[in-house]
């Protein structure tokens, strides 16, 4: 039992978590400024979101595979692929959250004398919370899913065991090996939901 835990859970865990949270963090750092940039410039928005939309349609597996000729195999290329994958949901959702405000509210804010920057911080950001979190949750699920796959391009994580057992066609071990992954996915979602509840101002919370 202890061996099982060690083999299937503790060994792959650190690298898996690094892939997931590392990519989340970096994606957020990159995506949020890009979303705000889209806000300021219509052409940029069409370019960025259009480009990201395009990439999103491409199957994840293909994206993962394509970084190999470019960056080789291992942890870093996998991280890069996952980040690429997560950009669209975060950018798009954040952008929608920042812009889907009643035009009358915006007009009124301008009329009161708020600068664009103040409007951004005081009105758009709070309004964007639900959409933003929705994007983050979706991205986290993606990251978790891709992190397992990335074993096929030489990263660590739970995928290593999975592919080993696929190769051996050892169904029982296969099932055991993916249980932790599913649990992590559920745990991630729950954590994010709780985080969202805590951080969203009460009036904006969806019932």
């Amino acid at each position: 039992m202890v061996d099982y835990l060690e083999l299937l859970v503790f060994d792959p865990l650190p690298e898996h978590l690094m892939l997931v949270f590392g990519s989340l963090l970096i994606s957020l750092l990159l995506a949020l400024p890009l979303a705000i940039l889209c806000l300021k410039n219509k052409h940029l928005k069409t370019l960025i979101i259009g480009f990201a939309n395009l990439i999103q349609a491409i199957p994840s597996f293909a994206v993962l595979a394509l970084v190999v000729p470019l960056l080789g195999i291992g942890f870093t290329p996998a991280l890069f692929a996952i980040i690429l994958r997560m950009m669209l949901p975060i950018i798009k959702n954040t952008y929608i959250g920042l812009t889907t405000i009643d035009t009358k509210t915006l007009e009124y804010a301008k009329g009161l004398g708020l600068t664009d920057r103040q409007i951004l911080f005081q009105i758009r950001f709070p309004n964007a919370y639900p959409a933003f979190f929705s994007g983050v949750k979706f991205a986290a699920v993606l990251a978790n899913s891709l992190a397992i796959l990335s074993a096929i391009i030489g990263a660590g994580g739970f995928g290593v065991n999975v592919f080993k057992y696929i190769h051996q066609y050892n169904i029982q071990s296969l099932i055991y090996s993916i249980i932790p992954v599913i649990l992590i996915a559920v745990g991630l979602e729950i954590t994010l939901i709780l985080l969202e509840k805590k951080l969203t101002p009460v009036p904006l919370q969806k019932s």
Partner: peptide, 13 residues
């Protein structure tokens, strides 16, 4: 929520 590969594997049996 279930990762893609995980779901595929769950369906193998």
């Amino acid at each position: 929520l279930i990762p893609t590969l995980a779901l595929l594997i769950l369906l193998l049996p």
